[in-house]
């Protein structure tokens, strides 16, 4: 464990907690893509199957449970909470995310570290996480609504990406056999798509703040 990875895990967790608190506090999820949140929950469920079989550390186990619980809590809020679900932009959140699930699963069948169920699902979760933000990006392009996409959420999501890339550079430099090509290449693609999301977020945020200026 290095400081970059710890910071990356903390900012990743904070981004999920900040979003959950925002949705729960305002009882609104307008502007949030349920599909992206479902894909994130699927990423954690597919990746943390080894929760009960391989014990790596207390930290690792606790964080896996917290990631699964918090991402499912967001999906539960948006799907079932009587007040929140009314504010879901169902007609705008139309990205066909099943193609993302199918495509990344096929890729995981081809590109994996070992052709075992656990490794295929792990690679699937890595590829899926890279593209999971796409429904949110499309929804943001369509709605321009950043009410619930707080600046903190976007900041922590970006910090998570930055710290993980620093973590891989650090591990590559300090560990003789650090070769995690699947995680590194997919993580770089994920960071690129995040940068695109950040660009649309910044544009929308600027337009909204212009709109809100006193006439």
């Amino acid at each position: 464990m290095n400081i970059f990875r710890l910071a990356g895990d903390m900012t990743h967790l904070l981004s999920i907690i900040v979003l959950l608190l925002k949705i729960y506090a305002t009882k609104s999820c307008s502007g949030i893509s349920l599909k992206t949140q479902e894909l994130y929950a699927l990423v954690f469920l597919a990746r943390y199957l080894d929760l009960f079989t391989d014990f790596i550390s207390v930290y690792n186990t606790i964080m896996k449970v917290v990631f699964i619980a918090s991402s499912l809590a967001i999906v539960w809020c948006m799907r079932l909470h009587p007040l929140v679900k009314r504010s879901y932009d169902k007609e705008l959140d139309t990205f066909r995310h099943y193609f993302l699930i199918g495509g990344t699963f096929v890729l995981a069948l081809v590109l994996n570290e070992k052709f075992t169920l656990q490794e295929i699902l792990w690679a699937f979760s890595i590829y899926l996480e890279a593209v999971a933000i796409l429904p949110q990006l499309v929804l943001l392009q369509r709605s321009g609504n950043v009410d619930n996409l707080t600046g903190q959420y976007v900041f922590f999501l970006g910090a998570y990406r930055a710290f993980y890339i620093l973590n891989w550079i650090y591990r590559y430099l300090t560990e003789p056999r650090f070769t995690r090509w699947i995680a590194c290449v997919s993580g770089i693609v994920q960071t690129g798509i995040y940068a695109d999301f950040f660009y649309y977020y910044f544009i929308s945020w600027k337009n909204n703040s212009k709109l809100k200026l006193p006439a």
Binding site: D54, I56, N60, K114
Partner: peptide
């Protein structure tokens, strides 16, 4: 055969 690395990253 090469055992895949245990995935210690979250």
């Amino acid at each position: 055969d090469k055992q895949p690395e245990t995935h210690d990253e979250l």
